[in-house]
């Protein structure tokens, strides 16, 4: 992600660090906060349980 440049009147343009851009984007954080546990906990767990052989 390229660093954004924030300009304000009469001041030097201020570079916004990439990490701050991430932290300032609530919807990106929402995406990450859903994907991480969904993949690592739910999907992985469901795959493991689904692969348990059924007793005969």
């Amino acid at each position: 992600m390229s660093e954004q440049i924030q300009e304000s009147a009469g001041e030097e343009p201020e570079r916004i660090p990439v990490m701050q851009q991430v932290l300032d984007n609530p919807f990106l954080l929402l995406f990450l906060g859903i994907v991480f546990p969904t993949v690592l906990y739910i999907l992985w767990g469901v795959m493991e349980i689904a692969s348990v052989p059924v007793a005969r």
Partner: peptide, 18 residues
């Protein structure tokens, strides 16, 4: 945001299915 929800797994530490 990234990791806190994963602690849910400690409820299943004695479960045989995972």
């Amino acid at each position: 945001i990234l990791f806190l929800q994963l602690a849910s797994a400690h409820h299943l530490l004695a479960d045989p299915g995972v």
